[in-house]
């Protein structure tokens, strides 16, 4: 008899496609949270597979902090255009201008926390009942407790101690008016799985994931990209470095790594031998031991 076992990547892919199709079947107005980072790009690719040959089924929702890498924005626009996907952009700058969000001050100011305000506003404006995100359980300890279908009450809060049990492949997306869901199709993927899958499927990703020369500076052991977004302290010196990004977020909270990786194979090899978690270069998680848990409870994805 033939071997009927799937490779781990095929099985993960199949599971994620199943989840995405459940979203389309169980919700009226879902959107895919799209940051231009590798995880949301993989979700995008999986959604294309899930619904082919129909055109891309969900609008893309990007919460734009105004502090993005230019390369990410270009990539986002080109991808949406290429596959005819609708793009919704929620602007953090606009939330600040309207007085709904208050800009942080100081050298380590970031707009990361402010994203929640804009996200919730956008959800309300477009009456979205489910937001699909590329979060993974291996990323962070609070995320290890997430469900695939994560229920949010009318205050958009996550209640980690009182989550709906999720058994077999039976996802309960029932909700009352005003409530909504966050859905995480790649919950069971690790950083390594994501890179191997990108390699296997030859998925296009923004250029800043590969090594490039960039003006950077060092602060608290983290390599930052030099930009108008982060004011330099007097003793900090900008120098040219050969770097790439392991995760892509807001410029103010994404650290770079020294790297020579020019191909996907080299990135996979680098990830395999690296000894620090990818969120280790995310300054947003370092604020306290429960930084992610607190943000998630408040409605962050």
């Amino acid at each position: 008899m033939k071997n009927h076992t799937l490779t781990h990547l095929k099985e993960l892919e199949s599971e994620s496609i199943f989840v995405l199709r459940e979203v389309a079947a169980q919700f009226e107005k879902p959107a895919l949270l799209f940051s231009g980072g590798k995880d949301s790009i993989v979700c995008f690719h999986l959604a294309r597979k899930a619904f082919a040959p129909s055109k891309f089924p969900f609008p893309l929702l990007h919460v734009d902090t105004g502090h993005n890498f230019e390369e990410t924005i270009t990539f986002r626009d080109e991808l949406a255009k290429k596959y005819g996907a609708q793009l919704i952009v929620g602007s953090v700058q606009q939330s600040i201008d309207e007085g709904k969000a208050i800009e942080e001050r100081g050298f380590s100011a970031s707009r990361n926390v402010l994203q929640t305000v804009t996200l919730l506003e956008t959800i309300e404006k477009y009456k979205l009942d489910a937001c699909i995100g590329g979060a993974r359980r291996d990323e962070e300890k609070a995320r290890a407790k997430e469900r695939f279908f994560s229920h949010r009450d009318e205050f958009v809060q996550w209640d980690p101690k009182n989550q709906r049990p999720e058994l077999w492949n039976l996802f309960n997306g029932r909700k009352h008016v005003g409530e909504h869901f966050r859905v995480f199709p790649i919950s069971n993927w690790t950083e390594m799985d994501v890179w191997q899958y990108i390699l296997q499927e030859n998925i296009e990703i923004p250029s800043i994931y590969f090594t490039h020369e960039r003006e950077c500076f060092l602060r608290d052991g983290v390599i930052y990209a030099h930009s108008h977004v982060i004011p330099l302290k007097p003793n900090e010196k900008v120098e040219k470095m050969q770097v790439r990004f392991r995760t892509i977020g807001d410029i103010s909270c994404t650290g770079a790594v020294l790297s020579k990786a020019t191909t996907l194979e080299e990135i996979v090899e680098e990830v395999a031998s690296t000894r620090v978690t990818e969120r280790g270069s995310r300054i947003d998680d370092k604020r306290s031991e429960a930084a992610m848990e607190d943000r998630k409870k408040a409605g962050y994805f």
Partner: peptide
Amino acid sequence: DVAYRYFA
């Protein structure tokens, strides 16, 4: 709660 962990 149930937590999911990964290794390879």
